[in-house]
């Protein structure tokens, strides 16, 4: 490495953090600017808030059998029952949809845990999801009572029969973010970007900054540092 390049490199390292400190205001400005841009995008763009946010209406039910040796219902039994189409007539009596049954029911889920069957339905419309999950519950209960030795199928949680949770169906990381998180993401991106720009400009800037640079890099004495003066037209001379 040429001696002058080595000197330049040393100076760059020494002044790196000093440069960041001197340009801290610019970094803050960049952070705020990006945060505002992301916030504005979130507020203006309806599809960001509507496209991926889906409600999941969830209804838990427990099965009480008539006898202890009665055949037990499994999670798969209920899933097959729902998917088979046997419940179509009962569900579509009170639920209106343009979709085919198979498409409609593809947004339904069944989970079993600790003696409770959770039936869920995902939809953008909270009210619609609630209504559907209740219809599915009613239709499933009716069919199970016909085919199994069951005494009753009550709600798992009597005080809150339908639980809601906001979830993202088939969404990525950004889609799960709310307005605050989206703005924060913008701020983080702005901070990193501003920092990158400041550092890039610093590392690429190889102009002479002051008398110390002249002495250190070129081994030339500085005879004088001339402050700013008005330029003189040679015509006047």
């Amino acid at each position: 490495m040429k001696p002058q390049n080595k000197l330049v490199k040393e100076r760059k390292v020494a002044g790196f953090f000093e440069n960041i400190f001197r340009n801290f205001g610019t970094i803050v400005l960049g952070t705020v600017l990006f945060a505002m841009i992301f916030l504005g995008y979130f507020l203006v763009n309806d599809k960001v808030s509507e496209r991926k946010i889906t409600f999941a209406a969830s209804l838990g039910m427990t099965i009480n059998y008539n006898s202890s040796d009665a055949k037990k219902v499994s999670e798969d039994d209920i899933i097959k029952l729902i998917e088979s189409g046997d419940l179509k007539e009962d569900i579509f009596t009170n639920i209106s949809t343009d979709q085919s049954y198979s498409n409609f029911i593809s947004d339904a889920r069944v989970e079993y845990s600790d003696g409770v069957f959770n039936i869920m339905y995902f939809d953008k419309d909270e009210t619609y999801a609630t209504a559907v999950v209740k219809e599915i519950y009613a239709a499933v209960s009716k069919k199970l009572m016909e085919n199994y030795d069951i005494e009753s199928i009550p709600y798992a949680d009597e005080s809150n029969p339908v639980r809601f949770k906001v979830t993202v169906k088939n969404g990525g990381f950004v889609d799960r973010l709310g307005i605050k998180d989206f703005t924060l993401l913008g701020a983080v991106i702005g901070f990193v970007f501003s920092l990158f720009i400041i550092c890039a400009f610093y590392l690429l800037d190889n102009t002479v900054k002051n008398a110390m640079d002249v002495r250190r890099y070129f081994d030339i004495p500085v005879l004088a540092v001339i402050p700013p003066i008005e330029d003189k037209d040679e015509e006047d001379m």
Binding site: Q4, V8, N206, T207, V208, K209, N210, D213, V214, Y217, F218, I220, L223
Partner: peptide, 15 residues
């Protein structure tokens, strides 16, 4: 006497 302009003259050019 070598004249340099602060924050304009590049180091490689001075070399």
């Amino acid at each position: 006497i070598l004249i340099m302009e602060q924050e304009k003259t590049r180091q490689d050019v001075v070399f």
